[in-house]
Amino acid sequence: MQHAIVIENLSHCFNSRYALKDLSYEVRQGEIFALLGPNGAGKTTTIRLINGLYTPTAGSISVFSMDSVRHGSQIRQQTGVLTETSALYERLTARENLRFFGRLYGMPESLLLKRTDEILEFFALKNRADERVGVYSKGMKQRLALARAFLTHPRILFLDEPTSSLDPESTQQVHELIESISRQDENTVFLCTHHLEEAERLADRVAILHSGRLLALGSMDELKRQFNHGIWVEVELLQPMESTSSISLMRGVVNAQIEGRKIRVQVAEEAVIPALVAQLVAQKAQVMSVKPQQVSLEDIYFKLQADVREGVA
């Protein structure tokens, strides 16, 4: 698979304080890549560096084999960025905002007119396209800022908190749009979000940052394997068990706890679950239900952030 972005040994300082420290990773062409981390982790700085707005203190970034420092303008020609704040011209209308940015991207006037109408329609702004943006609601401004980022059909779309201040319907719509951009057009989406479920739902791969350092990188499956030793299984019984000692001795069982009529068992892999059920039945336990607990991105994220705070990671 081709790489859209290659980051090598990237560090960036502001007044001798490291905002990013020695990062190396690639973003593949056509994937949805999510960058997660608390405020100040370095997410926005990363987007600015990739787009050539900053010169890295050390290391290098290439976008479609173009160096971010030397070819910033050419790189930005192929990217669209939804900034953290909507950054719209509030004294201009929505249509004037889009046409201004379209012209700066060199879009031919006829195409720009057509595309502006299409995108205003898509984001349900066409009826109010000729009103000044200053009178828009927060949600409308966010939709317009998204429209601006999508306007030029960018090959890489950077989205910094794309669904903040959107209602559930619009959020759903944006999620579908992000998926379609990536799946159909083979375009790359670089997503910075605080919504972990959003990243889990949309992203092919996830990177977790903390204070400019990369804590984890991989697909959801890879992260689960890397950071969660085993799967938790919740077994509900008709009668409470007195002891889990026979379960704990089973091959593949890492941990077992009694919680009233339930037992929670941590197994090394899914294949252990049938043997666990068989063992319980053999012990005359009356099994009502067996629920393997899926590890969420949220579990991994908070575990990593806690590890950092405790000095483990």
Binding site: N51, L53, Q77, T79, T85, A87, L104, A145, R148
Partner: peptide, 14 residues
């Protein structure tokens, strides 16, 4: 002041 500069800086304009 209005924080619109960042969107402008992300355009291809040098």
């Amino acid at each position: 002041e209005r924080k619109t500069i960042e969107a402008l800086l992300y355009t291809p304009a040098t």
